[in-house]
Write a protein that binds this DNA or RNA. Structure first.
Lengths: 194, 194
DNA sequence: ACGTTTAGATGATATATATCATCTAAATTA
DNA sequence: TAATTTAGATGATATATATCATCTAAACGT
């Protein structure tokens, strides 16, 4: 059943989107091609009309995941009162919603280490995504020099990712997890201000 | 070929150790039971004389990994000049060696998210390990109250884990990766001091 | 309108993997 | 020393998984 090229592009987008969700939610290795296709309402056979391999799909999903996150964060800073952009970023990143829904959250915090090991095009897409994320943070950090802005952005991103990871790890103890989020927020703000 | 119970215990330790190394190096899902046994110089068949399942082994490996890390860190603070314990901890955690050798490093920074998804006894061992690691850091943080010590320990651990993750992600760009380590170190020290 | 192309379905293959039943020879134990 | 127990080996099973050849019907170019 041949589809129009517009429909094909839409199908591809759909596959990438569900793959991203499943990969963030269940992990790279645990997400199978057939499963993704089924979840997208297709059969596994047609997969290779869209992607050369599972690796290819994963790279596309990582790229799309970062792009989506950047768009969301940019929208949030745009809405925030002037000078409060970074604070809004931090609150969003360290929100309970983000902690509780890895499948809709940051790629870096959900499959960072697996990507590291995967290497190849997946890792390349990942590094590119991180660089662009750092750039976004850099824009919203105040400092004397560009270099100092970048340094602070690195420190902020570090504490955001680490804090989210810790909060997720402690999730069974609601109070302790909440505390981890709060401590990371305060830390991020302090690190941003020098 | 029956072995003495002392030999059996030693074999078990060997299996746990190699499993820990492989899991940190290649990931939980990518590490197979047969492969671990082969690496330990055994055949896959004898595995179930030692563990009830792969999950059981993974939990043991996580527990042993945290115990090993605590021992190493404790040794480092013991060697450091008085009052410099935390600084030594930070330098070790954010060293290039730790960045470059995940298979010998911190469980939290190498399989944190996978453990999260695995749940069950693996996650239980992981949470226990983190709690004890936090306690170790708490002892070496100065603050007015116990609660403040704990808060600062959480912040420090967050930036350590996040910084290591970022440094690993940027590893292909040596200068940038180095910078991430350095920024995280400075950040950790600042956060420790209030 | 007609022939060519191709998106997606069907079905097959090859490989890996966790788990376990059974076997055997050596270590306990009586 | 003889009987019993069991660590580890052998081999099998069941399941999942990536990948691809082939088929079909619909969209596109002529």
């Amino acid at each position: 059943m041949r589809r129009s090229s517009e429909e094909k592009a839409e199908t591809r987008r759909q596959i990438v989107k569900t793959a991203g969700r499943m990969i963030r939610g269940k992990g790279l290795a645990e997400t199978g091609v057939a499963e993704v296709m089924a979840e997208a309402g297709l059969t596994h056979g047609g997969f290779y009309r869209h992607f050369a391999s599972k690796e290819d799909l994963a790279a596309a999903a990582v790229e799309a995941g970062f792009a989506h996150m950047r768009a969301r964060l940019a929208a949030i800073t745009a809405k925030a009162p002037p000078g409060k952009g970074l604070e809004a970023l931090i609150d969003t990143y360290l929100s309970e919603a983000h902690r509780d829904q890895p499948q809709h959250g940051c790629v870096m915090a959900s499959i960072g280490m697996e990507v590291q090991r995967a290497g190849g095009v997946i890792q390349a897409a990942y590094e590119d995504g991180i660089a662009k994320l750092l750039a976004l943070f850099t824009e919203h950090v105040q400092a004397a020099s560009r270099r100092q802005q970048e340094d602070r952005a690195q420190a902020v991103l570090s504490v955001l990712v680490g804090g989210l990871l810790l909060a997720r790890a402690l999730k069974h103890d609601a109070a302790e997890s909440q505390r981890a989020l709060q401590n990371a927020k305060l830390a991020a703000l302090r690190l941003a201000e020098g």
